[in-house]
């Protein structure tokens, strides 16, 4: 029997036939939802092989390595309660963790609170850029809900919608988009002027289509302002929620887009790297989630002209939805994304 896990992280045992059947079912689910091509029989067999290997840790073959970017890299150390400064954390990532790229991030990981402390963040960026060699991102979340009452200036769409005030809810989101774009461009400009190589918009569209539109508009403005700036748009989920429902970018309705469609808009907005996300279903098995995630990501890679870095972490990219992602699943997802999904990075 094969030992694997559920999407909630618990161990289960399956036969090889059951593993293959679940991978095929995951592939089929992605095909049906995304209206995309399935994996080939050979690719499915390779995923079965990855899932069924007895080793705890699985890796790519020599030569199949890819590039790693890190959402909120700095905070991964801060959260462990290790009290060291951001430049030192970046040095550890570079020289001890063998990171291909670095990402500075403030503990309040959203553009709205960061705009108040941009001078301090610029200091950290400038200091870090002097003592590190690897390319340096500054990352934060667009986080549109922070612009709604009582935390922000705009009426709260989440309160207006249940009250049946659809037009008011839409107007509130459109107002929030304007605030968010200004903050993202302000912070992005600040950290780039201080010496960062680029900006990472992390968990884009967590609040739905309005947040996706805000991020694309901010990306467009930053690209016009800084032609050489690296801009990564990393998504929050596989499917853009239609919380507004009517918003568009470049004539394309944003609600309901899947990764292979999202990446085309990121390209038009001027992004350098697109971060595809496929959510993990905690009630399904790891093989089911792996088949599904790789199918979506492969379709995105094939549609893209820019590098695609899949998000493969807690609850995304087939990794179980737990705080301590198990190495057996992470290493298998990492390998599958590189060798079957043909990702440019993770």
């Amino acid at each position: 029997m094969i030992v694997t896990r559920m999407g909630d992280g618990s161990f289960i045992k399956m036969s090889e036939e059951e593993v293959k059947a679940d991978i095929e079912a995951g592939v089929e689910d992605a095909v049906k939802r995304g209206k995309i091509e399935p994996l080939t029989a050979a690719e499915i067999d390779y995923l079965v092989d990855i899932c069924c290997r007895p080793q705890k840790f699985v890796s790519v073959q020599q030569g199949n390595e890819l590039i790693l970017t890190y959402d909120s890299g700095t905070l991964k150390i801060t959260r462990l309660g290790i009290p060291i400064g951001m430049p030192q954390i970046m040095q550890i990532y570079e020289r001890a963790f063998a990171a291909d790229t670095l990402e500075l991030a403030y503990v309040h990981y959203s553009f709205k609170p960061i705009k108040m402390i941009v001078p301090e963040e610029q200091y950290a960026v400038a200091e870090t850029s002097l003592v590190t060699t690897a390319p340096l991102f500054y990352g934060a979340m667009p986080n549109l809900p922070l612009y709604t009452q009582p935390d922000g200036p705009c009426p709260n769409a989440a309160e207006l919608l249940p009250a049946g005030k659809i037009a008011e809810a839409r107007a509130a989101q459109e107002e929030a988009v304007e605030y968010a774009v200004k903050d993202m461009v302000f912070v992005g400009s600040g950290v780039y002027e201080a010496g960062a190589d680029g900006i990472d918009f992390d968990t884009t569209a967590a609040a739905g289509d309005a947040e996706f539109q805000a991020t694309l508009l901010a990306c467009e403005q930053l690209r016009a302002k800084y032609p050489d700036m690296a801009i990564e748009i990393g998504m929050a989920g596989e499917f853009v929620l239609g919380f507004h429902g009517q918003l568009e970018y470049d004539g394309v309705r944003l609600a309901g887009l899947y990764p292979h469609q999202q990446v085309k808009l990121a390209e038009k907005a001027g992004a350098s790297i697109f971060g595809a996300v496929v959510n993990t279903n905690s009630s399904r098995t790891f093989p089911w989630n792996l088949g599904r995630a790789v199918t979506f990501c492969k379709a995105c890679v094939e549609a893209a002209k820019i590098p695609v870095h899949a998000n493969v972490g807690m609850g995304v990219g087939a990794v179980p939805l737990v705080m301590t992602p198990p190495i057996d699943c992470v290493s298998r997802a990492s390998t599958a994304m590189a060798e079957v999904g043909k990702l440019d990075g993770l």
Partner: peptide, 29 residues
Amino acid sequence: MALTHMHASGMGGIRTAGDLVARMQMSKK
């Protein structure tokens, strides 16, 4: 998790040429 990915599929940063390849993705798409 970062370390798991680095071992499983990462290029290796400045241990290898990971930072250099990353720069070409970031700067030249």
